[in-house]
């Protein structure tokens, strides 16, 4: 039997959350994990810690405390300015070996996954990836993770009883952050670090954030067909509010309303968003193969007989030019309430 570096008998009753950040802001997924971590810790009278690594990021530690952390373990070093797997894995390994948390949660982001995969092996422990639900059994302290496989077709509950830390990654959007509380108290604990340049093999040659069209990964696809009569500006507004992107069927592309890279379907892009909103699209098979992998499909079409409704979860018979502006208004007013 494989043995982890520390076992349940040696664990601290705490939950550790990997705090990701970009451009001086904590990632949403990290706030969401702090929210979920707080909820689970409160139920068990455990403590919640954040693992923050970077260069000149101490401010973010206080932010994490305001979002629920009792402690922030801070790895502060110039070599941690950009994510490199060597420096981050080294620092995180040291922090986890010292602090021995029972549970260690990371966002299922590109960097979160890289780090989780490395650390699980280094710590000789298990890793529940892409969890859609988390719960800690109050008697045993065992983390029960819900994961799905086979394109969401199969749900499993996974646990580890003899290995620590109990690692899990969670996709963005699964949990909700707690209310921010600037008055909350917390401790910042510096991780004693020895990092040398030659430990780092990865060299970042070039880096650009925020460019390019990648419809294959968008969480929300707002697609327009002939029925929107070229009004992609309207769809773009909706997509922006939902954090998504705009796609199209062939006819609007043909008519020059939108670039061909945004064509969805057999001869275009195959998408797998959480939500696809099909506006004024009749539902030709050539298009439909491009949205079959969407979790939820919403279709708006004035023709009640349109085949698109056979492929949709929510079907709306009506004029897209009336309905979409209403959705935009509703989203905006909801946003204002949330910010108020």
């Amino acid at each position: 039997m494989t043995v982890s570096l520390y076992n349940p008998g040696e664990e601290q009753k705490s939950i550790l959350v990997f705090l990701e950040h970009e451009g001086g802001v904590l990632a949403n997924v990290s706030l969401e994990l702090l929210g979920k971590g707080r909820e689970m810790a409160d139920g068990l009278h455990w403590s919640l810690a954040g693992l923050l690594m970077g260069h000149q990021v101490a401010d973010l530690a206080h932010e994490a405390i305001a979002y629920g952390a009792d402690e922030v373990w801070l790895g502060e070093h110039p070599l941690l300015q950009f994510f490199t797997i060597e420096a981050y894995a080294h620092t995180a390994f040291q922090a986890v070996s010292d602090g021995k948390p029972s549970v260690f949660l990371l966002g299922a982001t590109p960097n979160g996954r890289d780090l989780a995969g490395r650390l699980a092996v280094r710590l000789r422990t298990g890793l529940n990836a892409d969890c859609s639900g988390l719960r800690i059994d109050p008697d045993s302290g065992v983390l029960v993770s819900e994961v799905s496989g086979f394109g969401g077709g199969v749900l499993a509950l996974i646990e580890m009883r003899t290995h620590r830390p109990q690692m899990a990654t969670v996709r963005p959007g699964v949990f909700t952050p707690s209310e921010m509380d600037r008055n909350k108290n917390g401790k910042v604990i510096e991780i004693p670090l020895v990092l040398e340049e030659d430990m780092i093999q990865t060299q970042v040659v070039e880096r650009e954030v925020g460019s390019g069209i990648d419809l294959t990964r968008t969480p929300v696809l707002v697609a327009g067909g002939r029925g929107i009569e070229g009004d992609f500006l309207m769809l773009q507004k909706l997509a922006d509010l939902l954090g998504g992107d705009v796609g199209a069927t062939r006819p609007p592309v043909d008519e020059g309303h939108i670039e061909r890279q945004r064509q969805i379907g057999q001869t275009g892009v195959v998408c797998s968003p959480e939500v696809a909103i099909c506006c004024g699209i009749s539902g030709a098979f050539h298009f439909v193969v491009g949205i079959e992998k969407a979790n939820t499909v919403i279709a708006i079409n004035s023709d009640p007989e349109a085949p698109i409704f056979d492929y949709a979860d929510y079907c709306i018979v009506g004029d897209v030019h009336q309905i979409i502006p209403e959705i935009i208004t509703a989203l905006r007013s909801e946003g204002e309430i949330a910010h108020a």
């Binding site: 199969v154 749900l155 009883r161």
Partner: peptide, 13 residues
């Protein structure tokens, strides 16, 4: 032997 995790339940979504 080499697997820390166990599947405690499995169901169709």
């Amino acid at each position: 032997n080499g697997s820390p995790t166990v599947v405690s339940s499995l169901a169709e979504a």
